[in-house]
Design a protein around this nucleic acid. Sequence first.
DNA 1: AGCTACTCCTGGTAGC
DNA 2: TGCTACCAGGAGTAGC
Length: 280
Amino acid sequence: MPELPEVETTARLIEPGLLGRTIRGVQVDWLRSLGGMSRGKFEGAVVGAKVSRVWRRAKYVVIDLQRRGKPAGVLLVHLRMTGRLVVKGKWVEVPAYCRVGLQLDRGNLFFLDVRKFGRFSFHPESESALQHLGPEPLSDEFTQEVFFEALHGRRRAIKPLLLDQGFLAGLGNIYVDESLFRARIHPLELARHVSRVKAARLFEQIQTVLREAIVREGSSFDAFYRTPEGQPGSYQHLFQAYGRTGKPCTRCDRAIRRIVVGQRGTHFCPRCQVLSKKSR
DNA sequence: AGCTACTCCTGGTAGC
DNA sequence: TGCTACCAGGAGTAGC
């Protein structure tokens, strides 16, 4: 499922086909993808606008729009489970599972989404729509010290906390499991009981996992995530925990266990990731 | 504050 | 073969 590395890859790969393009028309095949806006309002907001920038914040692809050189709102695209963005050239038949399409002065942008959880929504400006999000894990403002202090005040288990986009932006189920595995921290360890040493390890592993996954253009292991060019990512070959239930731990050979934490499948090594007594 | 349960969705697959 | 039941899950929300 698309998390920070997959969304980063998507934003990077669609940008060349969108930059400077003007939106000529819209096609909406699933109204709820617009996140509550009517078809007519959406059309009025975007038709005639020009794309000035494509970037990523948390798990959102952000498409900045302009009119006559001035900011004219943003499109926020959240891929959720099965969303994809694809830029196609001149003539196309509409791809399967297309929920929203933008006809451009050159080419088309399609939002495809099998399960319809994703969103393709217009906002007058990005700040208020993105203000609920925590720090970017690869930004300068996110430091070891900031991370340790933030963990210190929380009584929640570490995994649900890392999945909370208001605490830290961009991580999802896969990269949380991988980061906790590499840092040797049990997913149910209470955040306040994560020592300074372990917090430093987790900080490093979160950044390492994300950077490596970006280089590999994300993870593809089922029929869903593909880059906008249709290629699978390759980080799934480096999974050590996620989806490896029953397989040997790469460090100690013990079988990887699967439990459910906050309704999410959670994978860890019961020997390497031990729950401290305080957190039991 | 932070937990659980529920909702939204559908393709794939296991079981019969 | 063809059917049903169940599974995956990000984020928002309700209720405790």
